[in-house]
Design a binder for these strands. Sequence first.
DNA 1: TCTGGGGTCCTAGGACCC
DNA 2: TCTGGGGTCCTAGGACCC
Length: 404
Amino acid sequence: MQVPEPSLFDEEDDAPLPARSTSAPATSRRIAHLDMDAFYASVELLRYPQLQGLPVVIGGSRRRTDDALLKQHEGLPLAEIPIEAFPLLKDYTGRGVITTATYPARQFGVGSAMGLMKAAKLCPQAILLPVDFDEYRRYSRRFKEVILEIAPVMEDRGVDEVYIDFTEVPGGQRESGRTLARLIQKSIFEATGLTCSIGVAPNKLLAKMASEFNKPKGISIVQVSDLQEKIWPLPCRKINGIGPKTDEKLQALSISTIGELAARSKGELVERFGRSYGAWLHEAAWGRDERPVVTESEPVSVSRETTFERDLHAVRDKAELAAIFTSLCERVAADLQRKGYEGRTIGVKLRYADFKSVTRDQTLDFHTADAQAIRHAAGLCLKRVDLQRRFRLLGVRVGGLRKV
DNA sequence: TCTGGGGTCCTAGGACCC
DNA sequence: TCTGGGGTCCTAGGACCC
């Protein structure tokens, strides 16, 4: 194994030691990452089992009209609606991206975040279903309840992902965690009919990568000793925290794989990526990560935004925009009230036709969750942005939250 | 025919205070 | 009058994630 050279920029010696639980020394931690398989699509398939095995894509705007096709069959149980009645991707026109694709659809090269119009070229015959967040949230709650009954230290990472600390769970160390992972998979399937993939490793970073190894329905165990063989050949993008921008910079330095990243000195990475991110890149490439599984956290901000069906202009589309703006403020206010928070930093976001975004915010000297107060402050923010150009998105955000 | 919506965290400069 | 370092808050933008 290659050992990085010490560097002038290496200030790790001065850094405080990472917090470490005395009952669970880092070397024996067993952390799992659980990822639901094609979650939104799988939930839809529970409703529409006749679509099993077909390419299905979830996404698009809620204003789609072809739901009417489904309405024609209102009298029928959902499972008996004929396949021909479902809207096809090729008939979709408008903005929007794929949120999830079934595995048969992925074979055509379509996947998350791809524009629907582009996806329609790759797989025109795919069935397109609109997103139903309320339904996904219901299933999300159910599978997380199942996990919590088995392993109480769980970190929520969104609607379809969690980290689980196996370390202190009875039997959590057996077969390096495989036994417990199997139990969780089976229990979730029995309770919901949904499948998931689980990676188990000494830390969150490696567990997250491991959960992708055997999708769908997979279980993967990664040990520290597997670093060279299983992790280093992977592209850097597989590290959670390296996105497209960083990857591009790394490529420019002839760094494509995690192993190539690990071979660079921490000093070089710190020089090129900054003290904090550079040092983190180095640690990540060596599979080191001491972050604990965090079971509770407070929200930082609440926001609502919407992309228009066509680009709008502040003057020419004044009435339409005013209505949208008011509605966004009302929805943010409702979200805050429902969650029991109020905030004092109010902001707006605009995205212009060229996709460039701007934000403006303003901190009040009082907290609020009131739609009118939010609209007033957000309105002042709006006056500080360039409203001459057409824009495609408007958003309203409230930060600086405190519990009511 | 490009590119959703909801978040978090980080950086960096300026204001302001001690 | 000039010259200092903090420290904290505010604001804007950007990277990243699900």
